[in-house]
């Protein structure tokens, strides 16, 4: 039974041809159940039947499915990739939901009700009426030391987390300090050890926040969550305590001392500059008149 031409979605891009937010209602229901279970057991990885999405694995298929299940028509969506709103991945996902859900989008953290992120937490404090959705490549923090899924599940259920510290031990013995700089393991509410996705460890302390945090791993078919105001502790040793580190410099554009920085190589001579990885935060500060060492006064068109 062939569809008539005007009913084929790829020929007709009007909203009516997609179910709201792309996924069918049964799938969203299944994902919402997984999300609720995840919120009820903070840090626990809930298996879910991940769907094929119109993008390759590794590009945020897990995050997109969680976002699709969480979105309502009244939401305002922001998408960031490494802190930036304007990279290919962020732009594509934002456009995907503009098209399939028709929701409003924004680049301003404060304006968004749902924020999908890859590898960063926004600098601005999030509120209780916001949801932060993380894209997760490998949800299992024990995976690199214990290849068996059966065994890692058992370790979680029995709270056998000595292995996590073996990883940190190896770091110190090899590098003289805990060299893990991103995807730094945390213990949630004193129970489950969780991979916070590859955010820099600078962001770890921010995970004790007011907003709901949802994590989606598409290829690995896992969803997990951290409810608002939940205790999130970064693992460490008594004599090598956790440190949230960042480049020791202010942002060259906005002068911020407290934000996570990207290092940008400017020319073949190796000239470098440090800029906020959170582009919205940086823009906001420049609009407010802050100017860094290499920055200029903010002009709407120059950005």
């Amino acid at each position: 039974m062939a569809l008539s031409g005007e009913n084929r979605p790829y020929l007709d891009h009007s909203m009516a041809d997609y179910n709201f937010a792309y996924l069918d209602e049964q799938t969203k229901r299944m994902i919402r159940r997984a999300i609720l279970k995840g919120l009820a057991i903070p840090g626990y990885q809930v298996p879910f039947a991940s769907r094929e999405m119109p993008m390759p694995y590794g590009w945020g298929t897990g995050g997109v499915q969680v976002t699709a299940a969480a979105l309502t028509p009244d939401d305002t969506l922001k998408v960031i990739d490494q802190g930036a709103d304007d990279t290919t991945n962020a732009v594509s996902i934002r456009k995907f939901f503009e098209k399939t859900a028709g929701v409003a989008t924004t680049e301003e953290t404060g304006q968004a009700s749902v924020i999908q992120t890859r590898h960063r937490i926004p600098e601005e404090d999030l509120r209780e009426d916001q949801i932060l959705v993380y894209q997760v490549p490998i949800p299992e923090p024990l995976r690199f030391l214990e290849p068996s899924e059966v065994e890692t599940r058992k370790m979680h259920s029995l709270e056998e987390y000595g292995l996590m510290h073996v990883k940190l031990y190896e770091d110190i013995s090899r590098h003289g300090a805990i060299a893990t700089a991103y995807a730094y393991p945390v213990k949630v509410e004193g129970r489950y050890v969780m991979d916070p996705s590859p955010i820099p460890k600078f962001d770890n302390p921010k995970m004790e926040m007011a907003a709901i945090q949802l994590f989606g791993a598409g290829r690995e078919q896992r969803i997990y969550a951290v409810p608002p105001h939940t205790q999130v502790v970064s693992l460490d040793f008594d004599d090598y305590p956790f440190e949230a580190s960042k480049a020791d410099a202010p942002c060259d554009l906005c002068g911020a001392e407290d934000s996570y920085l990207d290092e940008v190589i400017m020319d073949d001579a190796g000239t470098r500059m440090f800029v906020c990885s959170d582009t919205d935060y940086c823009t906001g500060r420049r609009k407010a008149g802050h100017i860094g060492a290499q920055g200029t006064a903010f002009e709407e068109d120059a950005a």
Binding site: G162, H165, Y169, D238
Partner: peptide
């Protein structure tokens, strides 16, 4: 590993 498994947390 066994030490860490029984709670040792001093490197």
């Amino acid at each position: 590993e066994r030490l860490m498994a029984v709670g040792a947390r001093h490197y």
